[in-house]
């Protein structure tokens, strides 16, 4: 694991644990956003996973269903594993944290999967906003381009990104020539 990534994930887990114990979903969402820069640059599975997991946890805290302190214990163990260079232990504890959430209610299993999928779409859209192409963003977060496009359309991301490149008039002129609306 790249040193920058490891350092950032340890920091996110430390703050994430605290936010979980305090039931502070807003901080968790902000933490998840913090991981997006690494997700965009390195595009490694650890940065991508942590972005999704932390965002999903923020949604779960909002729902007030599981006991966040137990989940926080696994987050703590995940951090300690990573600090001790135990990447396998880190991954196992992160998985256990999510499994624990899913255990609370059989129906919650679907709920958690839904939340994780939604988190992937949300984070995918942010990566796209950071300048990574739509197909690459979808691939990174294991979501379909259909889902990502539909979600993006409901956001202000395309407006915030602006245009750049060719002028609209130039594009329209080429299109009109293609379809015989204007002489070539």
């Amino acid at each position: 694991m790249h040193e920058d990534i490891k350092r950032d994930i340890i920091d996110v887990l430390k703050k994430g644990e605290e936010s979980l114990r305090n039931g502070d979903s807003k901080s968790l969402r902000e933490l998840s956003n913090h991981t997006l820069h690494n997700s965009s640059i390195f595009q490694d599975k650890d940065s991508v996973n942590i972005a999704v997991v932390v965002y999903a946890l923020s949604k779960i805290v909002d729902s007030e269903k599981p006991d966040s302190s137990e989940v926080a214990d696994f987050i703590k163990k995940a951090r300690e594993s990573l600090e001790n260079e135990d990447v396998r232990g880190y991954e196992d504890n992160l998985t256990k944290a999510m499994d624990l959430v899913a255990e609370y209610d059989k129906k919650m299993d679907l709920y958690v999967r839904h939340i994780i999928n939604q988190a992937g779409i949300k984070k995918g859209s942010r990566i796209y906003e950071h300048g990574i192409s739509l197909a690459r963003a979808a691939e990174l977060f294991n979501i379909s381009q259909w889902e990502l496009m539909k979600y993006l359309g409901q956001t202000r991301i395309p407006d915030k990104m602006g245009e750049g490149g060719a002028e609209l008039e130039e594009r329209l002129e080429h299109t009109r020539k293609l379809f015989g609306l204007k002489n070539e």
Binding site: H37, G131, I132, S133, L134, M161, G165
Partner: peptide
């Protein structure tokens, strides 16, 4: 329909500025 590939074709230099701004690095 997506913007990044479009910019890469039309004006790759504009992507540099954009990435710099968004990635804060």
């Amino acid at each position: 329909d997506e913007r990044t590939t479009r910019l890469l074709v039309e004006c790759p230099h504009s992507l540099l500025e954009y990435l710099q701004k968004k990635l804060h690095t």
